[in-house]
């Protein structure tokens, strides 16, 4: 970003003449929420940051899911694995994110890697626990029927256990996604990426519309993501929502 010093304390007004809306307009007066600013900077600030935010979230949840899923499969077969993984993942959780990102900097630098590692760390526990609970929640009689019908272990996993664990897994994904969206905004404190960047920038420069509008955008993104996952969950697991018919 080009612009005034990061240490500026007054309202930031683009220094190329009068702001949109004129001297007494919303932007010049540092109003709480100026549509002018939103429409002016949608394409150069808000939209790119939104895309970055979605990318940060998708990468973190994607990698976190692969790790947690593999760990859950191991823990499903090897009981000893669960406590060790849980303790590790739970320990990460006790560190406030604002601090975790800072603690990672000496190791991974000021880049996207620091944010992603932090975000991935926070997704692990939820995804691991939910996947494992889903796998363990498959009723014993269903497993016995599968064994008795001659399904191999692998077939039992792919055709019976995983589909039945799907509601628990998607519930975990839902929490992981909204959590990651939230934490990714905090991550911008370290590396200016995603929707957290305009929020921190707005806070630094005391330009209200910037952090209010970006905050609102982050809120909308979280709600949209939440709704999309709920919808996907319903489509993926029709049996879990079928109502009992009169018999």
């Amino acid at each position: 970003m080009t612009g005034p010093s990061l240490l500026a304390t007054g309202p930031v007004i683009p220094n190329f003449g009068e702001p949109p809306g004129g001297k007494n307009g919303c932007i010049a007066q540092n109003g709480t929420f100026c549509w002018d600013w939103v429409s002016l900077h949608w394409s150069d600030i808000l939209q790119p940051r939104l895309v970055e935010h979605i990318q940060l979230t998708a990468i973190a949840v994607g990698i976190g899911f692969v790790i947690a899923f593999a760990a859950a499969l191991v823990a499903h077969r090897q009981r000893w694995f669960e406590p060790s993984f849980s303790v590790l993942a739970a320990f990460l959780y006790t560190i406030p994110s604002l601090a975790l990102f800072q603690l990672l900097v000496p190791f991974t630098g000021l880049g996207v890697l620091t944010i992603e590692i932090g975000l991935i760390g926070y997704t692990l526990l939820i995804l691991f626990r939910n996947t494992l609970e889903g796998l363990r929640g498959v009723p014993e009689d269903v497993l016995e029927a599968a064994r008795g019908m001659g399904l191999t272990r692998c077939q039992t996993l792919t055709r019976i256990e995983l589909p039945l664990a799907l509601p628990a897994i998607t519930a975990g994904l839902r929490i992981a996604v909204v959590t990651t969206i939230s934490l990714a905004t905090v991550g911008a404190y370290i590396t200016p990426l995603g929707l957290g960047q305009p929020i921190f920038y707005g806070l630094q420069t005391n330009f209200t519309t910037e952090f209010v509008a970006t905050g609102a955008l982050a809120v909308l993104l979280a709600i949209a993501a939440d709704l999309i996952i709920v919808l996907a969950q319903r489509l993926l697991t029709p049996w879990a929502h079928s109502r009992r018919l009169a018999t």
Binding site: T32, V178, S182, T185, V186, F211, V219, A225
Partner: peptide
């Protein structure tokens, strides 16, 4: 409640700050 719980903390703080 589920919708409120999905909100990013920093974003809510930022919006509140404006008002």
């Amino acid at each position: 409640s589920n919708i409120l719980r999905a909100l990013p903390s920093l974003a809510v703080i930022a919006i509140g700050l404006g008002y």
